[in-house]
């Protein structure tokens, strides 16, 4: 594949080298203290804060000319946020981009972890809207920092307890709070519960960036990540039993529900579009060979 033309007048990967250095330093600190939110000097970017700028700055400070980049939004490569971020990065770095999870060295994601297993040579960068898991129970930043410092998570636990008392189960769908390395409670960004167990003892480095809130945090490979749960109300992922992807027939992927406007019928498709497309292609090839 031909290298795309790099936009002239910009530094490699848009950010100036000092900014990248700052972000890399913060990233190293975040990796050293798993789950701890490291403040950083969030830069102005050509997209608005809160539209993936945290993840984008991490990607910009990590990317090199030999990287192969994949950008997804809610599992899809072709959604406007993913397309724009991919374009910006491609234009300012000239790196090769891909939709194939197994090929990408650097993946920036909004609210999903790709279905295909990730390995130790890959880095997954999350875009985070609200990095503070205690914000649900405490509005003051000063207090939440104190609570983290003292490992005082009883109020978050009470929130979960009251959820069970009121609804019979924990109603948090996305953004399920997790305990990292037995020390810090962390917000895994609004990924569905389905993706949360995949943070635990993983091969890959997971980096989280919140541009508007100016925080970077990380889950290094082989780190314990446990969902908060009660011994009599264990953590559960979304249940898709009896459902399958309408396009590729997958029964073990996270599915999106689509309701037909006319008939009102429910269909399900894989949320990870690249994974779905790959499965369909493999099926087609298998059909030709048979």
């Amino acid at each position: 594949m031909l290298k795309k033309k790099i936009q002239s007048g910009y530094n490699f990967a848009f950010l100036d080298e000092q900014s990248k250095k700052e972000i890399r330093r913060r990233t190293l600190k975040a990796v050293a203290i798993p789950g701890y939110q490291v403040p950083f000097a969030s830069r102005e970017l050509p997209i608005a804060r809160g539209w993936g700028t945290g993840g984008l700055q991490l990607t910009m400070s990590l990317i090199g000319p030999d990287d192969i980049l994949k950008v997804i939004d809610q599992g899809s490569d072709d959604v406007v946020n993913a397309v724009n971020i991919r374009k910006l990065l491609a234009q300012t770095t000239g790196v090769r981009t891909t939709e194939d999870t197994r090929e990408a060295t650097l993946i920036q994601t909004r609210h999903r972890i790709p279905e295909e297993p990730l390995e130790d040579w890959q880095i997954l960068v999350f875009q985070v809207p609200y990095p503070e898991p205690l914000r649900r129970v405490e509005p003051s930043e000063v207090k939440t920092r104190e609570m983290h410092a003292e490992a005082d998570y009883s109020r978050l636990w009470v929130y979960l307890y009251e959820d069970i008392v009121r609804w019979g189960e924990i109603t948090i769908g996305a953004q399920y709070p997790v305990m990292v390395n037995g020390r810090y409670v962390m917000d895994p960004s609004p990924v569905p519960r389905w993706d949360v167990p995949r943070l635990n003892m993983a091969e890959t480095l997971y980096l989280f960036g919140a541009g508007r809130e100016k925080r970077i945090y990380a889950v290094p490979p082989h780190t314990r990540v446990e969902s908060l749960q009660f011994s009599d109300y264990p953590f559960q992922v979304e249940d898709f039993t009896g459902k399958q992807c309408d396009l590729c027939g997958s029964t073990d992927a996270y599915l999106d529900e689509i309701i037909d406007d006319v008939t009102g019928a429910r269909r399900y498709t894989c949320s990870d579009t690249a994974y779905c497309a790959k499965r369909r292609q493999l099926k087609e090839e298998a059909g030709k060979n048979a």
Partner: peptide
């Protein structure tokens, strides 16, 4: 929930 807070702070995670 108020009573639970004290129990949870003491590490009892069983509803």
């Amino acid at each position: 929930g108020n009573i639970a807070e004290k129990l949870l702070a003491a590490g009892i995670y069983h509803v």
